[in-house]
Amino acid sequence: MAVRRFLRHKLAIAGVVVLLLVVLATVCAPLLTGHDPLKVDLSQVRQPPSGEHLLGTDGSGRDVFARLLYAGRVSLLVGVFSALLAVVIGSVLGAVAGILGGWVDALIMRAADVFLSFPVLVVMIVIAGILGPSITTMVIAIGLFTWPRAGRVVRGVTLSLREREYVQAAQAFGARTGWLVVHHVLPAVLGSVVVVATIAVADGILIEASLSFLGLGVQPPQPSWGNMLTDAQRLTVISQMPWLWIPPGVAVAVTVLSVNFVGDGLRDALDPRESS
């Protein structure tokens, strides 16, 4: 039933296809290009696209197409890992809040509000400004400041579960909280969590792009979709070398859009009540 509802969603299918292509292209990067994304070649600086360099070369003569593919790996991984972290933290805290209720619930939800109201970008300016930027810091910061979305969803489902008789019966039997989470809460929230996680991946990719663009995330020479655009802060680069900045920008937009389509499709399939 859920599968059929998903398949009916044309945009979601398109999203899956595009996403698969993107993932495949980044994973199979070595097969798609012979160039090393890090190899500087000062004889080949700022070449426009050609048969040899599909998307031309950058200011250090590195092949842009190769960089784009390898950058995709970093950007996707940052998206996935930060989403995982957010969902894990959010699920645990959300379930605890929902099951225990009372002041624990109040405290966790209050914290959720506070965390959610600090944009990762600003947090990273402070952290990276003091400790220096790194991919790990960025992933942790994204996870730490985006968990409340997952937390709220899981808490909501948990609360509605708590009203159900079988959970109350289990509780009356003295079931431990951990047991309840594993046997009742997790199965019930799985659908919603998958949806939230998908959207979190999209958000993660977008945040990575902004952070790396500003120099707060992935550091050159390692390429990421965001930091490939950093050079485009100079007018000459913008006007004379569009091959440097258009491809990574489009890659981010297309990937994020696809992930969002998939997320919408999953929502309709797994959680028809909440569908838009």
């Binding site: 999209a202 977008l206 792009a209 902004s210 485009a232 913008i238 900045w245 920008g249 981010v252 937009a253």
Partner: peptide, 14 residues
């Protein structure tokens, strides 16, 4: 929602 604003900015400047 899906297009990075800085990309739009650069596009706009271009």
């Amino acid at each position: 929602v899906c297009t990075p604003p800085f990309f739009l900015g650069i596009l706009g400047i271009y």
